[in-house]
């Protein structure tokens, strides 16, 4: 290949912007990594990582956030997949309204959501016109608070999960696939389980990973509902320590990249399958 062809393949300005982009993204990351390795004076070491991991609260809060994240993902899938599916199949005219609703978490801050939740669920549920308590206030016991947390996280993750699922459904033409399965005698459960969900694999995975990232890093909801989650822990750590938060941030970067790599792998495989349609 001669020089002019090579230059045409990598035009000057594209290369310049590419390098600027790389620097923009990698310089802070490098700075964080470098800072996290300098806990010990005049020495490069993994001390910050060692200290961060040896703190018992790190593991506890991380585990709590992980459990909440998994619960949020499962509940979101159960709620959103049938909803998006039904809208595509039977009420396409409702799509704009639902899309608007799913965008609400971008407009309404989490602080309003959490105050609303506390306001409504911190008093016992009584049977109307009587004093009979139907259900104790959800905020007064642990499971109740966890349920509120998951419900709140579901709202926060709604835009990402709904969009992922909806886009996934568009790429595989769920309507025709559903009709094909119906004509072959399949019930709704079979269609959902064997046709729709497997073909939404990559969409669900990307939605799930975004949800995971939101839940693990979320501070407001957990702080106000008094749950020892990873977000508030990281926030507190950042206020009192210098090197450990940097170490944990770098770990978070790696985890995100790992997750994106998984999405890429799975999407790559399924992209081919979807392309067949």
């Amino acid at each position: 290949m001669n020089l002019s062809l090579r230059l045409r393949k990598f035009p000057l300005w594209s290369s310049v912007w590419f390098v600027i982009g790389i620097l923009y993204f990698f310089m802070p990351l490098y700075a964080t990594l470098d800072f996290s390795l300098r806990m010990e004076r005049d020495k490069i070491s993994l001390k910050a990582y060692q200290v961060a991991f040896s703190d018992g609260r790190f593991l506890d809060t991380f585990l709590t956030s992980n459990i909440l994240a998994v619960a949020t993902i499962i509940a979101s899938v159960i709620l959103i997949v049938p909803t998006a599916y039904w809208i595509r199949l039977r009420v396409p005219e409702a799509r704009r309204i639902v899309e608007f609703i799913t965008l609400m978490p971008f407009v309404i801050p989490a602080i309003i959501l959490v105050f609303g939740l506390i306001r409504v669920y911190s008093t016992p549920f009584k049977i109307p016109f009587t004093d009979i308590v139907f259900l104790e206030a959800l905020t007064t016991f642990e499971i109740g608070t966890d349920v509120l947390m998951v419900a709140g996280y579901m709202v926060l993750a709604l835009p990402y999960m709904y969009r992922s699922v909806d886009t996934g459904m568009r790429t595989v033409d769920v309507r025709t696939l559903t009709e094909a399965a119906q004509s072959l005698g399949a019930s709704w459960v079979t269609i959902m389980w064997r046709v729709i969900l497997p073909n939404l694999r990559s969409a669900l995975l990307s939605g799930a990973l975004l949800t995971f990232a939101i839940v693990v890093g979320e501070v407001v909801l957990a702080s106000f509902l008094g749950v020892d989650a990873f977000g508030p822990y990281l926030f507190l750590l950042g206020q009192h320590r210098a090197y450990e938060p940097a170490a944990l941030s770098f770990i978070a970067f790696l985890l995100t990249w790992g997750a994106m790599g998984i999405i890429q792998l799975v999407t790559g495989e399924q992209g081919q399958a979807a392309g067949a349609h």
């Binding site: 595989v172 119906q182 004509s183 005698g185 349609h277």
Partner: peptide, 20 residues
């Protein structure tokens, strides 16, 4: 009757094969 109770086979313009 619902489509899955008719024993009628259908072929679609867009093939509609299950990609998975």
């Amino acid at each position: 009757k619902a489509p899955n109770q008719r024993n009628v086979g259908m072929v679609f313009q867009s093939y509609a094969l299950f990609p998975n």
